[in-house]
Design a protein around this nucleic acid. Structure first.
Length: 876
RNA sequence: GCGGGCGUGAUGGAACUGGUAGACAUACAGGACUUAAAAUCCUGAGGCCUUGUGCCGUGCGGGUUCGAGUCCCGCCGCCCGCACCA
């Protein structure tokens, strides 16, 4: 009798429809069950979903379905991070409106996601480019503005003179615009910023409480915030050398202890003192220009030589009026960190040492290793940066650097310069305020009006939303909002006179910084319904790529604080549990050679094994081609597999199962044809086993006094149930998968017996229960197959609604234990004994074993170690 | 440069808190069924040899321990993040 193969193409759409009709995954806000909010990072609607999405959303769906089975009211929503540049690029390339392009992509991707059988609440769906969404984002902006959480800041930007637009650092390639190829200029522009730095300390401290986040992500955030403790130190300018109206130079240092090793000051090219000095010195002005042009390119920074230019200005040492030091402009000093000025201590800092050696400045060692000889200790090529003892430092000599730090800080706090303390302890952060202005069309308009009389006036809430105009042209580069004939011309809401609308739009990271809160009440007129937001949040499990470990997560954490400050919600942290999943990677295939080399997509390659060697052939030409390294799936390397193709040929369940098998979820998974086929074999195997045994599996509880084979089946079922549940809780999907394989291997034999009618009622009952358990356990991972099996077994309702069964702990623990028995730490045999046998009994039994006796050869053991429930070691 | 992680069969990976290394899967080999193939089912498998109650084996070298993939010290290799941050 040939069993019909499971056909996902028929089965999967059927169950997707059944779930939708039953509204199984639509979640109510008022529900007495405990809440669980699981969220995967929402996608950018680029066109089609890719395997990374499949992996991400499968993991989230396993958790969502599992938690539902455990009795939680689960919120599992989906939306679209829909603003952004690709839509504008498409508009330029294809003459299609960014909105039209975006919504078409959303339609495609939505139906692709639906074909995956995800248990999403589609009733809460929105796109960030929906006016209903960005309207509320504008409300938030206005609230933030009123609360002082938004500011204006003039900052340098990369300006593309051809495209007439600002470029992100990543869009500057070798100093040229990525699209236009024009040399990029540095321009100063007034930009809107969110004052994330108001929360630097809070954002840092709260990381400690995020114990369900990966350590790595917390560390990255910590480094990004970059707290340092130091001293703000004011040096008096030597009046004989100071420019007019300048009397002091303020520097920030974390090493005030090395103040007697100072040999120069270095200031940024944009430092006010540098500008003043440059005004009187054309050579210096030229040098400053050079520094500015060096710009922000990463490559330039890496290789750039440390250069300086002596301004001729000198400062007076705070502890010695007779000691003056030169002030240099240096190309490595950043204007926007600290005060834009440092003091250089060559012996304690490699960069300062290189600089001193280059310009012939003195090098005085001030810290030497403990136990060194101060008379002979010298620094020539390598700075000494470790802990030690102070030398050559007058009243600091003999102290540790930490003691010296405090001594200098205390003395300078008491020493006055121009009526102010000369030194002040200061905590400094690397974190900068978040510039959100983007000179583009396809983003959330910043709801602000510029009036010559009234200055900056927020758009009154009654006049929100500020809608994006639809009649825009993309035939020219630049921001279409800026050159729109009417859109920007408005009346000032305050004085009624002619005024200008802000034409910048918001960084798309703003859109994604609060969407998780909007999902809790997507139809609400205000940005949130605080009651709903406070009830649902924080997100219990957030899942996404490591590439968002810093910015997106940090911005969302800031938004949560800013929204609390403006009364939109009341909680500390948005994401209680965070998980970063690995990438989907695939082999690459390269044909041709040299100039004519090209990448070949996996679908166009046939791989075969011959003589233990894997070889690849291009199907079109039949030529053997090179198998390249395994890399992240990307269009440029063509090593992509389309989820649609996989779902069409194997079904969504197979794709889902494969995505979570084998590789731990945080690591990269290698997509292989063999792996997918293996997953599909398992789908068919489960189906075959169940459908063949189903007629014989009358619903029956396992007999209470089951023993032998039936007991073994029951034990395996309960044990697996327990472990799989624990694995899913820990997101260890690959382990859960392995345990399910194991269970199927265990019950396959008994099920065959049952199907053949050769079993007693105890075995039938045990098998029935094992199969019911199995179906519930695979339901989060392979929901369609589970439904089909559930129906075949004649169980009531749908598998998606089934509760996770209770584990019978008595069946999980064995009555007998097989102790491995070691002689001198090497396993030599086993001892099977009652679980509750005490240590003495175990020891006596072990000493009776034949191989133990012969190892002892009549003499007494030196030692017998019995680790209860674990192992026995006999030391001879 | 600074910070973090990882290194286990042919491959992806298991191994709880120091306690049977290699679960599970993939690939492979052999067998059954078949005219044949696919599918399915069964079996095998870390390496080595002197085939034993054997020896070796978790990147390399040491150490702690009755016992080390796991802990400690020193190396090597790979990956990731940050990076002129004073």
């Amino acid at each position: 009798m040939a069993t019909e193969r499971y056909n996902p193409r028929i089965s999967e759409p059927r169950w997707q429809k059944a779930w939708a009709e039953a509204k199984l995954f639509e979640t109510e806000n008022d529900d007495p069950r405990p809440k669980y909010y699981v969220l995967e990072m929402f996608p950018y609607p680029s066109g089609r979903i890719h395997m990374g999405h499949v992996r991400n959303y499968t993991m989230g769906d396993v958790v969502a379905r599992y938690k539902r089975a455990k009795g939680f009211n689960v919120l599992h929503p989906m939306g679209w991070d829909a603003f952004g540049m690709p839509a504008e690029n498409a508009a330029m390339a294809n003459k299609v409106h960014p909105g039209k392009w975006t919504y078409q992509n959303i339609d495609t991707m939505r139906s692709q996601l639906k074909s995956m059988g995800l248990s999403l609440d589609w009733s809460r769906e929105f796109a960030t480019c929906d006016v209903e969404y960005y309207h509320r984002q504008q409300m938030l902006f206005v609230d933030f503005l009123e609360k002082g959480l938004v500011g204006r800041k003039v900052s340098k930007v990369n300006w593309d003179p051809v495209d007439q637009t600002v470029l992100a650092n990543e869009q500057v390639i070798d100093g040229r615009g990525w699209r236009s190829g024009a040399p990029v200029e540095q321009r100063e522009l007034a930009q809107w910023v969110f004052k994330i730095t108001d929360y630097s300390q809070d954002l840092l401290e709260a990381l400690d409480g995020l114990d369900q986040w990966p350590e790595k992500v917390r560390l990255m955030q910590k480094n990004w915030i970059g707290r340092s403790e130091g001293l703000l130190l004011r040096w008096q300018l030597d009046p004989a050398t100071a420019p007019p109206d300048e009397s002091e130079l303020e520097v920030y240092t974390t090493r005030p202890d090395t103040i007697f090793g100072a040999s120069f000051m270095a200031i940024a090219a944009d430092h006010p003192l540098a500008k003043k000095a440059a005004a009187a010195n054309p050579d210096l002005a030229k040098f400053c220009d050079e520094c500015r042009r060096m710009g922000t390119s990463v490559a330039a920074l890496e290789t750039a030589e440390k250069k300086g230019f002596d301004t001729g200005i000198r400062v007076v040492h705070p502890f010695d009026p007779a000691w003056t030091l030169p002030v240099h402009v240096a190309n490595f000093v950043l204007m926007d960190y600290g005060t834009g000025a440092i003091f250089g201590c060559p012996s304690g800092d490699q960069r300062d040492l290189d600089f001193a050696n280059k310009y012939g400045l003195p090098v005085v060692p001030v810290v030497m290793p403990k136990g060194g000889d101060a008379a002979t200790f010298q620094i020539t090529e390598e700075a000494y940066v470790d802990d030690g003892v102070m030398i050559n430092s007058r009243f600091l000599d003999g102290m540790t650097p930490q003691q010296a730090f405090d001594e200098v800080a205390d003395r300078l706090a008491a020493q006055m310069l121009g009526g102010r303390p000369q030194g002040e302890r200061r905590v400094q952060y690397r974190l900068r305020d978040w510039g959100i202005s983007r000179q583009r069309y396809w983003g959330c308009p910043i709801p602000v009006i510029h009036c010559d009389a009234c200055g900056i006036v927020p758009v009154p809430k009654s006049e929100l939303p500020v809608r994006l105009p639809d009649d825009v042209e993309f035939d020219r580069p630049g921001n279409p909002l800026d050159r729109h004939p009417t859109w920007r011309h408005v009346e000032c809401p305050k004085c009624g006179r002619a005024a200008r609308r802000e034409t910048d739009t918001m960084d798309t990271f703003v859109d994604s910084s609060w969407y998780f809160a909007r999902f809790t009440a997507p139809g609400e007129n205000n940005p949130t319904d605080p009651a709903a937001a406070n009830a649902w949040l924080p997100v219990d499990q957030y899942i996404g790529g490591i590439e968002h470990a810093i910015l997106h997560l940090l911005y969302s954490r800031f938004f949560t604080r800013a929204m609390r400050a403006t009364g939109h919600l009341d909680l500390d942290e948005p994401f209680k549990g965070m998980f970063t999943q690995g990438m989907v990677v695939h082999e690459t295939y390269r044909a041709g050679s040299g100039q004519n080399a090209y990448w070949v997509a996996p679908a166009e390659v046939r791989v075969q094994e011959a003589d233990g060697q894997r070889k690849a052939f291009e199907i079109a030409t039949g030529d053997e081609i090179e198998i390249g390294p395994i890399e992240k799936m990307s269009k440029s390397k063509k090593n992509v597999v389309d989820p649609d193709d996989i779902i069409t040929s194997y079904g969504a369940d197979t794709a889902r199962w494969f995505m979570i098998s084998d590789s731990p979820p945080e690591r990269d998974v290698i997509w292989t044809e063999a792996g997918v086929e293996g997953a599909h074999r398992f789908v068919q195997r489960v189906w075959r086993l169940i459908i063949e045994a189903a007629p014989a599996l009358a619903p029956a509880a396992p007999a209470a006094a089951a023993e032998g084979g039936a007991l073994a089946v029951s034990r395996a079922a309960h044990k697996t149930l327990k472990l799989v549940g624990e694995d899913i809780e820990k997101l260890a999907f690959n382990k859960a998968v392995a345990r399910l394989y194991e269970l199927v291997n265990t019950v396959a034999g008994p099920l065959g017996q049952v199907a053949g009618g050769n079993s007693d009622s105890a075995m039938v009952g045990a098998c029935r229960q094992a199969v019911d358990f199995l179906v519930v356990m695979i339901a989060p991972m392979m929901p369609h197959l589970a439904e089909e099996c559930w129906a075949v077994l004649g169980n009531p309702g749908m598998a998606a609604e089934a509760r996770w069964p209770q584990v019978d702990n008595a069946l999980v623990t064995e009555n007998e234990i097989a102790y491995p028995v070691q002689i001198n730490g090497k396993k030599r045999g086993e001892l099977t004994i009652a679980r509750d046998a005490d240590q003495g009994a175990v020891e006596r039994a072990v000493l009776e074993l034949g191989f133990v006796k012969s190892a002892l050869a009549g003499s007494a053991p030196r030692k017998v170690i019995v680790v209860p429930q674990r192992i026995v070691n006999v030391v001879v």
